[in-house]
Design a protein around this nucleic acid. Structure first.
Lengths: 186, 186
DNA sequence: TTATTTTGTACATTATAACATACGCCATTT
DNA sequence: AAATGGCGTATGTTATAATGTACAAAATAA
């Protein structure tokens, strides 16, 4: 239960059944076809904004009542279930453990870099910072003409709004945890 | 500036320019094509939920930052600019002055009923109430076997979660203001 | 100036959201 | 049991969201 249209699916179905409304009834209240209402509820369709708007208005509920995902108090993320992202021919692997969400201003990744693995990254948004702790191997970070080598157990924090690079400068697999902070707008 | 996709259009353009990002850049950050970003900004497209989600994540902003419509302190609604809804062959005309919105729990209509005009309405959601003040003519409301005649200057409040009807029982045009209250869920 | 890059839009195509219709299922009811 | 009505799903079609390519204007560099 992660993808946005699945959240809407769940919310809509709950609200509709709570109100004891048929698909037909929701259709005529909202002006959206019965078929589409059904597909949205089953998660078979990613509705457009105007469709969501029509439904919210028809049911006299707020837009966010449909897109809100009531977060549980606890979330367990299994490594095997994370969609891994690869760079440098698979030598640099990113596991997004806690992706960016709503007003949370950070995201947490686990990164694995094979021996000789390397990644050159562009600068992120103005004010963005990275917080890295190395658990195995050693990492060398180049940023702003300087370079820093972080060994297992050590950590680094740096402003990531300029181009920077990560290199495994050990002879083994390097594993690290990376938290990226994005400052709010304005 | 009313329709939901126009709100997103405005918000996206403001944020993008604020961050000095090109369409191209937003495209690669979000994984949504440059063309689509442009169309959304120009209000030429009503994006799907997944597209909005991709953009929000790419820019590291909340979903609501895109769909939020910063309401002005004052809103003037001209009668001529309201989309009028007609029933009973045009004898019953509804002007939605303040439609339902977000967590506001009511909406305000102006209604005009010609001589002999009539409307049979189904019951609204459980707990829904209507508040009517008649300004011209006279209105007879049937609900739950009872009927009430409201003359110019008078008002009525009734639970509208059962079938009810409105009839102009005067010899002239009847005009009234109707506020409908929808109770929150749960 | 001319050349070059960058940026936003126009166009043609593909993918899919949205709709109208029809069908099958599970209730009641008779 | 048969018939009826309400409800959700499957199907085929249309509208439009989404993409890729190409183009034109503006900005930058030479």
């Amino acid at each position: 239960m992660e993808d946005i249209h699945l959240i809407v699916a769940k919310n809509l179905k709950v609200i509709r059944e709570q109100e004891k409304l048929s698909l037909e009834k929701v259709a005529q209240l909202s002006g959206v076809s019965k078929t589409m209402i059904g597909q949205i509820e089953r998660g078979e369709s990613s509705p457009t904004l105007t469709t969501i708007w029509k439904i919210a208005n028809g049911l006299k509920i707020s837009f966010t009542a449909l897109i809100n995902n009531p977060q549980p108090d606890t979330t367990v993320v299994l490594r095997n279930e994370i969609q891994v992202l690869c760079e440098d021919s698979g030598k640099y692997r990113v596991y997004p453990a806690f992706p960016f969400q709503d007003d949370r201003r950070f995201e947490v990744y686990t990164v694995e870099i094979d021996k000789d693995g390397h990644l050159q990254a562009e600068g992120h948004r103005e004010g963005t910072e990275e917080f890295i702790t190395v658990f195995d191997g050693a990492l060398t970070i180049h940023v702003d003409d300087g370079h820093y080598t972080i060994k297992s157990g050590d950590s680094i924090r740096f402003k990531a709004d300029k181009p920077h690079s990560y290199t495994n400068t050990s002879n083994t697999l390097t594993r690290l945890s990376m938290t990226i902070y994005y400052p709010p707008f304005q």
